[in-house]
Design a protein around this nucleic acid. Structure first.
Lengths: 227, 227
DNA sequence: TCAAAAGTGTTCAGCGTACACCCATGT
DNA sequence: ACATGGGTGTACGCTGAACACTTTTGA
């Protein structure tokens, strides 16, 4: 501690993305204390004395969802002096991608958590809307260069479902053939010997995400070039 | 203030890029206090009680360089509990692009500041090397999609000089014709009726950066697409 | 037999890349 | 006259985008 210096509460706020059939969703909680009690808010919490910030984010997310090992990435740090009317709080925003099928709804209940369709969010407290806005832009960019978003689907999924996810992220229709070509050319999917017969009579092949191939892809740099 | 919560020193560290003829450079200071007195370090300082973080970064940078209105962008927040052996400090890293020709060397002297060639940096304190690493990656990526780096040159410059800058940023030789085609196609440069005769007998046209065109370019989205 | 989703290929345009020579001028 | 850096154009391959029909099968 450098005692001659100012001292701040440091919080983490989590932008939690989920995907349900064909809509991108956001998990929000109702604040249980003042200021802004009962307003919709991102899930947040304070960083602990001996805790690193990533761990704090993971802990807070686990409290809310009961999930460990979810995709979690630091987004941006917000520090306007008056951003929280309850006092000066510097907040490090993280965004998370979770599989809604794995969600522990018990955990969510404790926080009056609710999923909202991304295109239809309520007013949020403080600067949380700004955080969400930055998060979706980051997610969109990321999804173009990395096969992100497998984090948002159940383990086995059809290509149509994956396409629906990308369409939800980008809020735009995609061409089926081009999409499949593109995704398959990334070479991170394994087709299973199994079909999903729920969504169609004919049945659609199920795929699984191949983490090994993915890791090799990632380590191959940022996929930006200039020569 | 939320008194039931922990309280942290919050600092800003600045990764200051400059460009001198044909080398990318970094402005570093020698720490004047323990721990790690006399070690090379990024320029840093603590956030003030009623100051937002961007302003803190700008203030700290102005202390060091005497410059206002420099390009400054938040990079990442570092919060390992033991990152600073002097106490728990959460640090928000920013990177800055400055024109070395505008640098006030008086200001720098107070901090024993020195420019280092980017490819030849000294060992840095704490996690500062990690910060620098993230900053250069961000700068590289940014430079591919935005005409960043005009911030690093004097107001008037030749295309050769601009190319040298890009080569320094990417640490790679670029093809002259392709570079010029690419840069000019961005349509953010204005050719002046003036030549630089220092670097060659023939003389090279000087260009100026056109901020209006640039702003229009930026507002046109991230320059990533998916259809 | 029909409805509903799955699956599949080709063409074209634009962009990034490789590549080599003449120009203008000061000494 | 020559040395030095400035300036220019073209050909090719790859990638992204547009585009429509057949297949399967349960009801």
């Amino acid at each position: 501690m450098y005692p001659e210096s100012e001292c701040f509460n440091v919080a983490v706020d989590c932008i939690v993305f989920g995907f349900d059939d064909d809509r991108l969703q956001l998990l929000l909680v109702k604040r249980r204390f003042d200021p802004c009690r009962d307003c919709w808010s991102l899930m947040g919490g304070f960083v602990g004395r001996d805790e690193n910030i990533d761990d704090a984010a993971a802990r807070i997310l686990e409290n809310l969802t009961g999930l460990r090992d979810v995709y979690l990435e630091q987004l941006f740090t917000y520090g306007e002096p008056d951003r929280d009317p309850g006092g000066r709080v510097i907040s490090v925003a993280y965004y998370a991608l979770i599989r809604t099928d794995r969600l522990d709804s018990e955990a969510g209940n404790r926080y009056s958590a609710r999923w909202f369709t991304f295109e239809n969010l309520p007013v949020l407290v403080f600067d949380h809307t700004e955080m969400v806005d930055k998060a979706i832009r980051r997610l969109r960019r990321k999804s173009l260069i990395q096969p992100v978003g497998f984090e948002l689907l159940p383990e086995k999924f059809t290509l149509t479902r994956l396409q629906k996810l990308y369409e939800a992220i980008h809020h735009r229709d995609l061409d089926k053939r081009n999409f499949r070509k593109r995704i398959l050319s990334m070479d991170v999917l394994t087709r299973l010997d199994e079909k999903d017969r729920v969504s169609s009579r004919r049945g659609a092949w199920l795929y699984r995400f191949d983490k090994d191939k993915y890791d090799r892809l990632i380590s191959g740099g940022d996929h930006f070039e200039m020569k």
